[in-house]
Design a protein around this nucleic acid. Structure first.
Lengths: 192, 192, 192, 192
DNA sequence: AATGAATGAGGCTTCATTCAT
DNA sequence: CATGAATGAAGCCTCATTCAT
């Protein structure tokens, strides 16, 4: 059943987030689910296979958020636009906290195969941001002379570094609303 | 000899950068140096010990760069100031490419002990940035109402995400000079 | 299966008795059982863990023998009492020959952790002998002025030195019945 | 020089007594002496070689004590005779405390080669005790019907078990004089 | 579908001993 | 005589994966 597979994925998210890829043992995952080791291999070909599933799940959840910018744009000014967008992302990271920890911490670190997965996702993300960029130009939010590459890279970089601090380094005092406010302000000023 | 220890460190930097912590085996490091396995353990207590040495080395090299801002500040405008600072960092990352790969990719990922090391380094880095922040205020480059936390977090976040793209995701088309120019411009506008 | 664990224990007893703790390798034990190395670690956490199990098993087997003196005491004279008691012990040592070799030879020698185990067992043994001592006094076999400590220490010392000669130094000409007879006679005379 | 060799022996006695054979490393011995590792091998062929030297030294020191009984026998009664003899041994064990720990704890345990050494020493000891036995018979201290084997085995067994408790199990409350008194009394009564 | 005992390749590490200086 | 850096065989243990039930 699909339920069983989902249970394994959930347990995997928890354990990978808590221990990291190499310190996560199939034993702990199956114990968490309450199944036998052999059962794990009925649903996944390998530990790596499960991890890649998690990367893909993360991709599914987050990529679409990059295409949601349009929902926020009725006569809105750019500062507010960025603020809302950041806030949506921050909330998403919070909602999928463990999954985010896994991706931010290890998607690139572990192994070339995972790196490839990550690069694919990154490319899609940049495509979405490119669309956003075009949209902002077409609607006169920004001028054409803003270089897209740095725009995108900066956006993702800031956002991830903020999230990383909150999730991995556990800086509890980061207030999501405040962060969205401040960062969007920087952004607004930077690219106006 | 200290030479021998240094040889091991250099080999370690190469192999850890190429394979990641868990896929690096002492066997490959000692083979690269041309010594016996036992010899490794005359200079380091364990694989972990070597890795921590690398984290510390990175810290030594990079932390002092955060305190070098004063060298660039004679009557300089803020945009140029940031540009020069970023450029110095980008060059440092390039010079210590493999070491930077190791740190950016894994310092947080591998293991709680390493995470502690990383947090210590991060705290020192923030202290240095705090000094820079005070300096900028005192010299009227920026106003007091810039929140330091977001300032620092943004600075480090952008820089690392740029470097990560260049080093780990191997985007060869990133031009260091251009990146320093563009990013410093964003920065200047964001915090002016 | 508990069977498998017991098989490992039996093989362990043989190999530890033949080679001593430090010259015993897991490889030989598992080869004797006919299992893979990994299988050993399903049943014991470590080589040390197995050894401690053997110490405990020895304790179980032998300690209760110290409390069995009452079975031999109907209107019996002290000489016969000691003779029967010694005989029961000698037979037990013979029955558990390899286990006894391990304990007599190494329980104290190998490692502080084992020494602690041994001390605990020794304390229990002395408690049992103390009970025996009280019993002998209450039933007027011996007078109160026999010092217990030397009584117990002498009893255990003689018995173990006899057994050690037979088991470890391999003096085949020691006749158990004769030994029980002679030693009990010394004992009888010494404490009457 | 012979001095250097003696220094190594003394350090060896200390370290072997403190750690046991297998947990003693040449590194610690040479550090204690203040020489280089290579130097150790100028004086001893191997770790085993040093250990055998210690067994031999113990043999030298203790064996002659078994032949010293004659010094105590002018018109002396048997109880006093045994008491003085035991006391002389106890003092010797105390004087050579670490060496005694090594022998009592490990001479038999470690390795077949050491066991052979031990058996040789044991045989000589029994020869000396045999002489003592003859002497006691000839001087009418005891009658011929005391079986020598059990006499000797009992003597050595009691003595060693007392010493073992004091040295290895660290029972500080064993008073040497008292022990000699009590044990000799048992002995006297047992073989009279 | 589910089990879980068994596997075994392969990693890290130790330490007595050697040998060129 | 003395050194001490270097050696490398060999031991313990791990854990993802398999397969007979």
């Amino acid at each position: 059943m699909a339920d069983r597979k989902e249970e394994i994925i959930q347990a995997g998210i928890e354990v990978f987030a808590a221990r990291g890829y190499y310190n996560t043992h199939i034993a702990e995952i199956v114990e968490k689910v309450g199944i036998a080791k052999g059962t794990f291999y009925l649903y996944f070909n390998s530990k790596k296979d499960l991890f890649i599933s998690l990367i893909k799940r993360h991709e599914e959840i987050f990529l679409k958020e990059f295409d949601n910018y349009i929902i926020d744009t009725d006569n809105m000014d750019l500062k507010i636009f960025f603020e809302k967008m950041l806030l949506r992302f921050f909330k998403l990271y919070k909602k999928h906290e463990n999954l985010s920890i896994i991706i931010l911490r290890e998607a690139v670190a572990v192994n070339e195969e995972f790196e490839d997965q990550f690069k694919k996702m990154d490319a899609k993300r940049f495509q979405s941001l490119n669309n956003l960029h075009q949209f902002l130009i077409e609607n006169n939010y920004i001028t054409k002379n803003i270089d897209f590459n740095y725009f995108a890279c900066t956006f993702v970089g800031i956002m991830e570094s903020i999230v990383m601090r909150r999730l991995i380094l556990n800086e509890k005092d980061f207030d999501i609303e405040e962060a969205a406010d401040k960062i969007s302000n920087y952004f607004y000023k930077a690219i106006s």
